[in-house]
Amino acid sequence: MAGSETLTSGEYIKHHLTNLTFGQFPDGHWGVAHSAEQAKEMGFWAIHLDSMFWSLGLAALFGYFFYTAAQKASAGVPSGLQNFVELMIDFVNDSVRGSFSGKNDLVAPLALTVFAWVFLMNLMDLVPVDLIPYISGVLGIHFMKVVPTTDPNVTFALALGVFGLILFYSIKIKGVGGFVGELTGMPFETKNPLLKPFFMVINLVLEGVNLIAKPVSLALRLFGNMYAGEMIFILIAVMYSAGWVMGIFGGVLQLGWAIFHILIITLQAFIFMTLTIVYLDMAHAEHH
């Protein structure tokens, strides 16, 4: 917050990076944490109200517009909203057709959902960092992180959802045996029965890492990019409390970073969508 006379820069940044956490206090009662330490003490059984609120709100926004368009969709001349929605559908459809060779009615809607949701959540990054926290502060809510994708819970939830689908389709298409065979039979192959178990262990380790790396890299890539971007916005915002000259310089920096960030948020959403499609394509592909 610009008027941060009572906060040092470090406190200001920390304040901005703390989620509004609802959970159980060590003394047993439930409530909203009043500091980052309290939030940490709540352990696993706590929930980030701000992440949930913004992500679900944006999902509802997307759902509302696309559902409205879908209800009114006709083969006639499209107009306004329908035009935009169809543009998105076409874009996603092209991506799916380009990368996904199997036949699965889930993949394209999944890709659209991933792209739209990640993009909208990233888009919250372009809202000036202090605006919504300030408003919520006035309303009495003291922690408010408005960019859900800077919360690792959100990105990992997305990545684990995709990972679950990868496992599901790998087993569904190839069978348990086929999937295990894929994990243990490659990349080292041998006909020697003595070497075979040894190779299988090595293969399992390599392929296992390969498999686990998919959701982890998906989640961390998005989280890292958005977290870093948010951090830079916050650092720029700190300059506003350092006098007129620094304030104006900060304003210019913020504008520049925001414009650059338009690219990043779109790119990250696109990468997440494309990798989702590619991973699912790999899950569908039969190896021989």
Binding site: N153, V154, A157, G161
Partner: peptide, 14 residues
């Protein structure tokens, strides 16, 4: 930055 119940709630929402 803590991994907590939000993860599961987000998974379900997703």
């Amino acid at each position: 930055m803590n991994i907590n119940l939000t993860l599961i709630a987000q998974l379900v929402s997703f």
